[in-house]
Amino acid sequence: MNFMNNKKKLILVLVLTVLVSSFSFVVVEAKSGDRLILATTTSTENSGLLNELLPPFEEKFGVRVDVVSVGTGKAIRLAENGDADVILVHARKAEDKFVNEGYGVNRRSVMYNDFIILGPKSDPAGIKGMQDVTKAFQKIAESNSEFVSRGDDSGTNKKELSIWKKAGIKPDDSWYLETGQGMGASINVANEKQAYILADRGTYLAYKGKIDLAIVTEGDPLLYNPYGIIPVNPALYSHVNYQLAMSLVGYITSQQGQGIINDYTKYGKKLFKPLAIKPGNLE
């Protein structure tokens, strides 16, 4: 009986230890002062770039950058509601609207890559090697080939919908699959279904080794994909961490930040090209 009780005490001590250490976390979390909420796109997060880009900033300024990765549309809405301090997104029209309506200030161009159409090696729509993305979309629709759409109001989704519009097609047939998920998840769906998908090159390169899809269309000027960073307007939301947001803007557009972007590679290929400083001017 005594023996059992000792064991029971041991268990209780174990449980109490977990409890106490859990609560110490609440205290610690309350103390950890400066945190910056960066709402960004799934393409920047999935590419792995932010894990390289942010730690030197966090160390230099003694802060924590909390990355919430959602689509561009949702990132902008978070910022409009005052739930983020700064956004890093890619949909120029929506970005300009965000600034013009007074939600954001001091937008800076950060980097760019391009969109590409990925498709199965069998290429049922016969668009491999085509440069004109509008014609490629028309052929996909004509051949009723399966096409995966993000369907999440992200920058990529906005771009895709603008191309459908230009092609004069309203995609709502059974070959058109909307995932409502991030770039990586949608590429996986396209891979499983062996369907076409519009993707950004950065995420594609990050996933290249794991999927059985190839680039079928690239190089159309329509597919240019620039990223911008915008702090939330402190005049609108006094609680946002504007000073720190501007520090992040300064860092990302500095020699150091742009250099990290320029040097970031996956499978031996560069994912993004810097926009704030021309690569030739980087140290």
Partner: peptide, 17 residues
């Protein structure tokens, strides 16, 4: 707890709390 919501001032969104 969104900033525009009634408890927004507490800044609880995207925290452990």
């Amino acid at each position: 707890i969104s900033y525009r919501g009634p408890l927004g001032q507490l800044e609880l969104l995207f925290t452990g709390k």
